[in-house]
Structure formats: C-alpha cells, structure tokens
C-alpha cells in the first residue's frame, strides 16, 4: 500500500465502524461467501478455460452466481473471453503480474 493512515484517518475509520457495526453479521456472511465463491471460481479457471456450466460443475456453486462472478472478473480485468463452446462463451483467467 502506498500511503500510511494518519491519526485523522484512524479516527474516521473508528467512527465508521461504530456507525456501521453489522450487528447481525449479514455483511460478514456476505463477504465470507463472496470470497469463498471467488476463490473456487479462480481455482477452476486456473486449471483451464471453461464455460459457465463447466465452471458450475467444477465448483458446485449456483450457476447464476458463477455467471455473476465471471462477469465481475471480466469487468475488473482478471478474466477474458476465449471463444465459445456451442451456445456458451468460454472464459479464461488472466494471470496478473506478480500474483
């Protein structure tokens, strides 16, 4: 990370966490699921390009969730299209430098 947090940043973060304390754990659960799903899809894609139904079979996740993750990864530059297989587009992982 380029910059360090100042005291003012820390105070602001503290206030933010107090005001949005996620008492019932909804956000915590959402983020845990999100990370777990993203990791599974990334691992499946690292083994080779695949269509949404193929990635669904490999990960066991709900198919619409798989499409959503692949769409998100395409937007943020870690996935690209790699041709098609019948009625489905194939997606491949883009290895990031140094990751």
């Amino acid at each position: 990370m380029p910059a360090k947090l100042t005291e003012a940043h820390r105070q602001a973060l503290k206030l933010f966490r107090e005001q949005h304390s996620d008492l019932d754990g909804t956000l915590k659960k959402y983020v845990a699921d999100f990370r777990h799903e993203r990791k599974q899809i990334t691992e499946a894609l690292r083994k080779g390009a695949g269509t949404v139904p193929e990635l669904t079979r490999q990960t066991g996740l709900p198919v619409d969730q798989v499409l959503w993750h692949v769409t998100a990864m395409r937007k943020y530059g870690t996935v690209q299209e790699a041709g098609a297989d019948g009625d489905y587009v194939k997606y491949e992982f883009i290895e990031q430098n140094g990751k």
């Binding site: 990370m1 380029p2 910059a3 360090k4 947090l5 940043h9 105070q11 602001a12 973060l13 206030l15 933010f16 966490r17 005001q19 949005h20 956000l27 959402y30 983020v31």
Partner: peptide, 23 residues
C-alpha cells in the same frame, strides 16, 4: 456504499488525493 464496506481502509491508503472521508 456503507452497506457493503467492511471498513478495511485499503481505499484510504490507495487514494493519492486523500479524498476519502469515512466520517
């Protein structure tokens, strides 16, 4: 969007313009 922010502070560190105001 505070509904999805986990307050990790990564954005605050990344912003070269120091524009983020979590308070």
């Amino acid at each position: 969007n505070p509904e999805y922010c986990i307050g990790c502070g990564a954005c605050v560190r990344a912003c070269a313009s120091d524009a983020i105001r979590l308070d």
